[in-house]
Simulated scan of single mutants.
Amino acid sequence: MARVMAFRVAVPEGEVDCLRRRVRATRWAPDPSGTGWSRGVPTAYLRRLAEYWADGYDWRRHEAELNAHPQFTTEIDGARVHFLHVRSANPDAVPLVLLHGWPGSVADFPALIGALRDDFHLVAPSLPGFGFSGPPPGPGWTDGRTAQALNALMDRLGYAGYGVHGGDVGAFVAPLMGRDAPDRVRGVHVNALVTVPGGDDDPDALDDADRERLDALHRWQENEGAYLRVQGTSPQTLAHAHHDSPAGLLAWFAERYRDLTGTADLPDDAVGADALLTDVSVYWFTGTAGSAAHSYYERFHDRAERERDGRSPVPTAVAVFPTDHAIRPFAERAHTIVRWTEFERGGHFPALEAPDLLAADLRAFFLDEIFRRP
């Protein structure tokens, strides 16, 4: 049995001070006049957010919020895996894995944990290459390999049957956990599920709502999806900038939060400036901006994933928030969908934007439909 060791977040004060100095010393790029957000993050907005990061944001308060939950690390397949493990006082609680996405982290989950901890034993890992798990020991950490490692983690913790929830990157990994261990993964719940037409799909056969969702996906890919190509093709080039410049990392993340959240004009209007800065700080202090970007390269170049065929037998629930582009006829090629819920509030980061809706959907799916607990 590999060791499972207790862990606490404890960023040295010198590193916190160094971050603040670097932010204050930023060489700010000039803005083309009158362009607003049309060409990327405006300097005036970024500068205001960075100044708060340096002189107002309290990392220690958010570090303490993370440390309010039991945390551990263990080694699986040569990689360190960090995870929160919040056990319910209810002996009949359902084991549930919570998987974050990019540019998220386990710091996204406090509200969700608070809403679920009475009914679930919660395991929230930092994905290998992300956050407190740190960079993996080498390349080859595909979504499938990550899924196998996280099933190994649940086995190590003694869980014979459990559910898995994931959004964004987690929505790639969670279904693969089901495919890897269909006898143990009792159900999969995802949001921000990516669905694209296959060779046999006819987009013209879609109903009006799904056709509009497909058109919206194409518009998003054309106007806002450039980061996917960069991280999927040249992640190491990007890593140099993000490992050295906190303002550059902040700009990269802030644009994602603006593009992917609901109807907010500014990213911190949707999730709050502190939540955004906590995620950026986690990547900065752990040095994982580069390794997290490399996960996109692995996904783009994973032949096994491209060649995977057939439908997973694991019952799957899909939560569709307003900015999601999931299309059910395409999704049903790969997933056994038993629940499909569309929401009118929230966005790409529901654990931050609408934790009440996400928690209610998780409870309804896993407690009422999968594990059938009273």
Score class of each variant (00 low, 15 high):
residue 88 S to F: 01
residue 88 S to R: 02
residue 88 S to M: 02
residue 88 S to H: 04
residue 89 A to S: 06
residue 90 N to E: 06
residue 91 P to N: 06
residue 93 A to K: 00
residue 94 V to R: 04
residue 95 P to W: 00
residue 95 P to E: 02
residue 96 L to D: 11
residue 98 L to T: 05
residue 98 L to E: 01
residue 99 L to V: 08
residue 100 H to S: 03
residue 100 H to L: 04
residue 101 G to F: 01
residue 101 G to P: 00
residue 102 W to L: 11
residue 103 P to L: 09
residue 103 P to M: 07
residue 104 G to V: 05
residue 105 S to N: 04
residue 105 S to K: 04
residue 106 V to M: 08
residue 106 V to P: 03
residue 106 V to D: 05
residue 107 A to Y: 08
residue 107 A to L: 05
residue 108 D to C: 03
residue 108 D to Q: 09
residue 109 F to R: 09
residue 109 F to V: 10
residue 110 P to L: 10
residue 111 A to Q: 14
residue 111 A to C: 09
residue 112 L to N: 10
residue 112 L to G: 09
residue 114 G to I: 12
residue 114 G to N: 15
residue 115 A to R: 15
residue 117 R to I: 03
residue 117 R to D: 02
residue 118 D to F: 01
residue 118 D to L: 08
residue 119 D to R: 15
residue 120 F to H: 07
residue 121 H to S: 05
residue 121 H to R: 03
residue 121 H to D: 15
residue 122 L to E: 09
residue 123 V to Q: 04
residue 123 V to I: 14
residue 124 A to Q: 11
residue 126 S to P: 08
residue 126 S to H: 07
residue 126 S to M: 09
residue 128 P to Q: 13
residue 129 G to F: 07
residue 129 G to A: 15
residue 131 G to W: 10
residue 131 G to T: 14
residue 132 F to Q: 12
residue 133 S to M: 11
residue 133 S to C: 12
residue 133 S to V: 12
residue 134 G to W: 07
residue 135 P to M: 14
residue 135 P to G: 15
residue 136 P to S: 12
residue 136 P to Y: 07
residue 136 P to N: 11
residue 137 P to L: 13
residue 137 P to S: 15
residue 138 G to E: 08
residue 139 P to N: 11
residue 139 P to T: 14
residue 139 P to W: 05
residue 139 P to G: 15
residue 140 G to V: 12
residue 141 W to A: 09
residue 142 T to M: 06
residue 142 T to R: 09
residue 142 T to A: 08
residue 142 T to I: 07
residue 142 T to W: 02
residue 143 D to K: 12
residue 145 R to K: 13
residue 145 R to A: 13
residue 146 T to K: 08
residue 146 T to Q: 13
residue 147 A to F: 02
residue 147 A to H: 02
residue 147 A to R: 03
residue 147 A to N: 05
residue 147 A to G: 05
residue 148 Q to A: 15
residue 148 Q to S: 10
residue 148 Q to Y: 00
residue 148 Q to D: 10
residue 149 A to S: 14
residue 151 N to P: 01
residue 151 N to R: 11
residue 152 A to K: 10
residue 153 L to K: 09
residue 154 M to A: 06
residue 155 D to R: 11
residue 156 R to P: 00
residue 156 R to S: 02
residue 156 R to C: 01
residue 156 R to V: 01
residue 157 L to Q: 02
residue 157 L to E: 01
residue 158 G to P: 04
residue 158 G to F: 03
residue 159 Y to G: 09
residue 159 Y to W: 13
residue 159 Y to T: 11
residue 160 A to S: 14
residue 160 A to M: 04
residue 160 A to R: 13
residue 160 A to L: 08
residue 161 G to R: 14
